[in-house]
């Protein structure tokens, strides 16, 4: 059987596949945003002196890293409705279930990245901010966070790429993302080569664009080499420095 270009090009530019790609990207972005949001306080907790908090976070990381993402997907979609009627209502879509599964899973990985980045911030600079009378929250927002974010950027983008591909697991709970749409097309047409190639090309383009975006971002927020940069981040974080 030879490669049929028409069967390849038609879905490539079809609304169905574009929408599926959009769902894939949206799920990955929303999941990573949620994961970062809960993993930053967890990283701070890991660095804090409280032994109980540290132990609880360690258990969380251990549990969520040990169990496959696929199992979490199935668990949140199939098992949660058995726990509570809340999860039987209409808001609980496959997208929500997949989102929760990816957030709790990804947070377990992201927390280590955040912790390492926070620890890598120069203590002397934090002390200098203390010496000038900054409030601890100001020190975090104006010194610790921007510097840690820069350190965490490359591994975080790496995580995002892994996460983006992990969204394909949501095909088992019939979320209409790229892999699901591909599988459905293949199941009716048996045109494996063409549809798999379409899906592969979508993933490839998304990740390539992302990688380009990453290197631009890294250059922009590079204050360790002789280049004028960094303002973007200050604005981003409300530092408003000129």
């Amino acid at each position: 059987m030879s490669f049929n270009l028409d069967v390849f090009l038609t879905p490539l530019f079809s609304l169905v596949f574009m929408k599926a790609a959009l769902i894939t990207v949206a799920l990955a972005v929303a999941a990573h945003a949620g994961a970062i949001l809960i993993s930053v306080p967890m990283a701070l907790g890991l660095n804090s002196g409280r032994r109980l908090i540290r132990a609880m976070i360690r258990v969380y990381v251990g549990v969520f890293r040990a169990i496959p993402t696929l199992l979490w997907m199935l668990f949140f979609w199939n098992a949660m409705p058995q726990f509570s009627p809340i999860f039987r209502e209409s808001w609980y879509t496959p997208f929500m279930a997949a989102w929760i599964a990816l957030v709790v899973n990804e947070a377990a990985y992201q927390v280590e990245i955040n912790r390492a980045a926070l620890n890598a911030v120069d203590r002397a600079q934090i002390q200098a901010a203390t010496a000038f009378g900054f409030h601890p929250l100001q020190i975090f927002r104006l010194v610790t966070l921007p510097q840690a974010a820069r350190i965490a950027l490359p591994p975080t983008v790496n995580e995002f790429i892994t996460l983006l591909k992990a969204t394909s697991l949501a095909s088992v709970i019939s979320l209409q993302e790229l892999m699901t749409v591909t599988n459905q097309a293949v199941a009716t047409t048996f045109q494996f080569q063409e549809y798999y190639a379409v899906a592969a090309l979508y993933y490839l383009v998304i990740v390539t664009v992302l990688t380009l975006f990453q290197s631009r971002l890294e250059r922009r927020f590079d204050w360790t080499t002789e280049r004028k940069a960094g303002r973007g981040l200050m604005r981003l974080l409300g530092g408003r420095a000129r």
């Binding site: 120069d122 600079q125 200098a128 900054f134 510097q147 820069r150 927020f221 204050w223 530092g239 000129r242």
Partner: peptide
């Protein structure tokens, strides 16, 4: 020195007056 490495020299100098 302990200058804030992600800020320009000007930003370093105005940070405490503005924020504190």
């Amino acid at each position: 020195f302990a200058l804030w490495s992600h800020m320009t020299i000007l930003e370093n100098v105005i940070a405490a007056p503005v924020h504190v």
